[in-house]
Design a binder for these strands. Structure first.
Lengths: 353, 353
DNA sequence: CGAACAAATCGAATCGATTCGATACTATGG
DNA sequence: CCATAGTATCGAATCGATTCGATTTGTTCG
């Protein structure tokens, strides 16, 4: 009977142990390798496992007993599709997966929309990385805190007690702006990342800046203002080439108001601005200089080599992953603020005339 | 002591039940909502939970007891970064996440490299979608089969008993090729997706085609051969614009051997071919026609409107997700082969002269 | 030859919930 | 007033493994 049942249902460690003529505890030791088990016994256990088609210890039972699931959650503020349109996010994600290698953990994608049975509130995760920062993050964070799940926030302030991994948005932009000023530019415009959760497209106004929910966007604007106090511009509806192109057309179409340089808050936006300039018959950088941010290789932008601020996206992710590893080990790592590196490409030059 | 311990350690359902003056079973019923519990009791349980900072039932214990983890695994053949460079894969992933909504499950990213503690061999997943097909997939599949985990394969043959979700690669390419023939083209070349796991770049040779490990690539080549039996070309090292550009330069540089039309096996490759043509001073489609595949919006390709075969990527993912849902419900869904739709853009035209 | 020690193995408790069958209790109808 | 039905609650078994302390077995040394 036991045998028949075992043949039908999936075998358990106990079944394997019984067939090998050892106790369940010994079989467990044989599988985990953490304990003194004689070579002969180990082999007998493995043989029994093979005979019974036993696939190894059930991960669910393991995670209950060990109190670890071996899974790290990544909370995205949007749906999957939107998140992976952004190369910086992908690099961050890749960095995280690299940072948690010591854990040997998998990456569980979660959104903070809260729908679905497995939400951030009840996912079997050991730790969580929050990417970006949406307004409803607060609730998410409260849930995780109750559960005692370690968290890090990447580019966003999730709470005073939560470690942040960020970059020098303000200072990096300031350095980029200074480069433009040194070249002789004074009529400069911004193409910013979205300011609000609705991603409203349109001209940059003081009111809209005040209501910003994106720290990244605001910090980068502030950095530009240090050099060009009165700088204005437009906000894009997303960080992609097409949005950059639209913004570029808006800024560059009118020869009367046309700036001699554009500070784009991402490389994708910068690429779009370049396309817009081309469409309008303007040469880059002769007629208009374009500065980017991120340092991602924009697919298909060759032969342009974008002047930009190279941020260590993958390193950010890695740092986040490593911080989580440390927290799981009981340590209390500190947040990190990375520095971006200025890269002088061929898309900036002194203004014409 | 119990109270002190409970205050220190995380509270369990039993602690909550004790404080509410009910049994653990009743408290469980109150939380799950599946069973007759009086309103008064429910409230008392929730109050106790709040007082103890209880965050709800432990998902690890739940998944052991219920035999379900609420997680669907997605097996990628490469590292995260590489996978998400491909817009088609992103759409598929997004489709999967949509398809499994009834499950309310999360998506766990796994790679079949087998490294790390949580590999496909021991991840707490209820079902798995295999995206793309790498040679070492066989081992992965064997593991999952032992565990009795339902699987679907997207664009790839993983085993005779495994459901496949695919598209009409051969026929779709044939239709695209026919369009070119009808326009009058006869000197046509291919830019193919990678053929082997090493993603070797280079001219297409019979030997290399024979050793192909990518069904998708081979099927699309076969479709082109139906119309242009002797068609040759080059293989790209990946599906991106830069690889397409390199391939395009290789094909178009020499005026002697230059084809009048190029069949690219992805839109990104097609975009790269267009860039190469521009660099060489060739007009598209006047001097060279370019056909794509996928129907993804290539960011920044405007004002070109690529002639291509629009495949339903998101639908593929959704179908895969839905098939998994059905399998988990004990049903036996069948595989699906979707059809691609020809889209006539402005990158194809009759050959010059 | 017996004591002391190490290595291998085993038993039993445990992780935190779910769920089925049993029980206690309340309302209804005869 | 008792039988019957029905509802709310409880006890105990269970999911499948891990782990600690205890026990057995075999070796070495005085």
């Amino acid at each position: 009977m036991t045998d028949a049942a075992a043949a039908h249902a999936r075998p358990t460690l106990a079944d394997v142990a019984a067939r090998a003529g050892v106790s369940a505890s010994t079989a467990s030791l044989a599988f985990s390798g953490s304990g003194p088990v004689s070579e002969a016994t180990r082999e007998r256990v493995f043989a029994a496992a093979k005979a019974l088609d036993y696939a190894g210890p059930d991960p669910r039972a393991q995670s209950l007993r060990r109190g670890r699931s071996g899974i790290v959650g990544v909370v995205l503020e949007e749906r999957v599709r939107a998140a992976f349109l952004d190369p910086v996010k992908i690099q961050v994600l890749d960095g995280i997966s690299e940072g948690i290698v010591p854990l040997g953990a998998g990456l569980l994608l979660l959104t903070d929309t809260g729908e679905g049975a497995v939400s951030v509130a009840n996912a079997p995760v050991d730790a969580v990385a929050l990417i970006g920062c949406s307004p409803r993050l607060a609730h998410t964070v409260a849930q995780l805190r109750l559960r005692g799940i370690p968290m890090v926030a990447i580019e966003g302030h999730a709470g005073d007690d939560i470690i942040e991994i960020s970059i020098d948005n303000e200072d990096a932009t300031r350095r980029g702006a200074e480069h433009l000023r040194e070249l002789g530019h004074s009529r400069v415009a911004l193409v910013t990342l979205p300011l609000d959760p609705e991603r409203t497209r349109g001209p940059l106004t003081p009111e809209r800046e005040d209501e910003s929910t994106s720290a990244t966007t605001s910090e980068r604007i502030a950095g530009a203002r240090i050099v060009f106090p009165g700088i204005g511009g437009v906000t894009a509806g997303a960080s992609d080439v097409e949005e950059g192109r639209l913004a570029g057309l808006a800024l560059l179409a009118d020869p009367e108001t046309r700036p001699t340089a554009v500070i784009a808050q991402s490389d994708l936006l910068a690429a779009g601005v370049i396309r817009a300039a081309e469409e309008l018959g303007l040469a880059v950088p002769a007629d208009v200089s374009v500065l980017g941010f991120d340092g991602v290789r924009v697919d298909g932008l060759a032969p342009y080599d974008l002047t930009t601020l190279v941020q260590p996206s993958a390193a950010k992710g890695r740092a986040a992953g490593e911080a989580l590893v440390q927290m799981l080990a009981g340590e209390h790592p500190e947040g990190t603020c990375f520095s971006s590196v200025f890269h002088r490409g061929n898309t900036t030059a002194p203004p014409a005339r």
